[in-house]
Nucleic acid binder design. Structure first.
Lengths: 208, 208
DNA sequence: GACTGTGAAGCCATTCACAGCT
DNA sequence: AGCTGTGAATGGCTTCACAGTC
């Protein structure tokens, strides 16, 4: 749809703007300026305006932005105007925590099922979400039209889990396993690497 | 120490290179070229060389890099030549998962304690790590020389927990709460935002 | 007067291409 | 011949500054 290339940093900020706008909406605030948004998210006014300008003209000169309208636009831009089906692979500590995580539901993500190979976990539920064996993963993803897979298995199993998701024609994957993953370019893929994040902190502490 | 400004992207890649070099070391591989590293981490050879060149000359022309030496250098650059004391605030699902997470210990992070206000959790242990009340947080951080705090509390408590860590003169904070945090500039601070990561994926799926 | 939208400038990171070693 | 180290070129993101609108 959009052909113009959008910086990933802009997309990240849009998500943060949206969360801030939710807050303003809850406080009954009608109008907001780029400067106020900037203050609320620790950014700059010019950045806010530039980010929004990629997608249209949402504001009124001399006035600012309508909070509700703008938030609606941003949610639509982010694809949050309808809900997404998600599965989590790995029912260990991290997988369980992600399954319980309230923030996903609130933002339009339906966590449909968790997959694990531990025979003692299969059949149980995590906060209402059923646990199935990994052998059923591909079939389930196809049948239930799951678009997003979250990988929270130990590093050595991550590639095979990703392969199974790819085979099932998943659209996007969020990977928590600390391992370089090979994946065809047409699938959206992101890593969340907990150790790397800590090591950036130690680097900064040591090099100053 | 290092005055030259290093791109954050470079630091992230160094952490990934180091993990890949561990793998090579375990496989008994002695020498590696920038091209092989690039292949192993889905990067480019020029990028690998440029990243390393910020910190010195670690390779031999015509030959490549000594795996063990290079890994040692990178770990030192990242500040991993000695261990770090870490506390986790929040003993909920996410805090528990992070406490159990094996990857931290392996890379030199000692998780000393977890803090929570739930009276039913205080006094218990998570995989051997004791849970203390949040009221003891500042005192503990000072006394035990904790350098890194991980914040895994609900969003509405995140700022006050951060304030307590700042007051205790913590050096760095990794925040998992989906909330904009205000923090003095001299403290190293990073967000890991799970929802934002999913929303980047949905943005990419919708806009193609 | 206030605030948005945007071309231009400035800044930063990545890629290129080749000189320099082994 | 092979591979590193690096200045130069390119590409991309952010900031600036102001014209346009209410």
């Amino acid at each position: 749809m959009k052909t113009l290339k959008i910086p990933e940093a802009t997309v990240i900020r849009l998500s943060v703007y949206s969360r801030y706008l939710n807050q303003l909406e809850n406080n009954g605030i009608i109008t907001v300026s780029s400067g106020e948004i900037a203050e609320g998210v620790n950014g700059s006014p010019a950045q806010v305006r530039k980010d929004l300008a990629y997608f249209g003209e949402f504001g009124t000169r001399g006035v600012g932005y309508n909070v509700k309208d703008l938030n609606h636009h941003i949610r639509k831009i982010l694809g949050l105007d309808n809900r997404w089906n998600v599965v989590i692979v790995g029912a260990g500590n991290l997988g369980s925590a992600l399954t319980h995580y309230k923030g996903f539901q609130e933002r339009g993500f339906n966590i449909l099922a968790v997959f694990d190979n531990d025979i003692n976990k299969v059949g149980l539920r995590i906060g209402g979400v059923p646990i199935y064996p990994v052998s059923h993963l591909s079939e389930y993803v196809k049948k239930e039209k799951v678009q997003i897979g979250i990988v929270a298995v130990p590093a050595q199993y991550a590639q095979e889990v990703v392969d199974a998701l790819v085979e099932a024609d998943i659209k996007a994957i969020l990977n928590f396993a600390p391992r370089v993953i090979n994946i065809p370019g047409h699938i959206d893929f992101r890593n969340v690497d907990l150790v790397v994040n800590l090591e950036i902190l130690t680097f900064n502490m040591v090099n100053k």
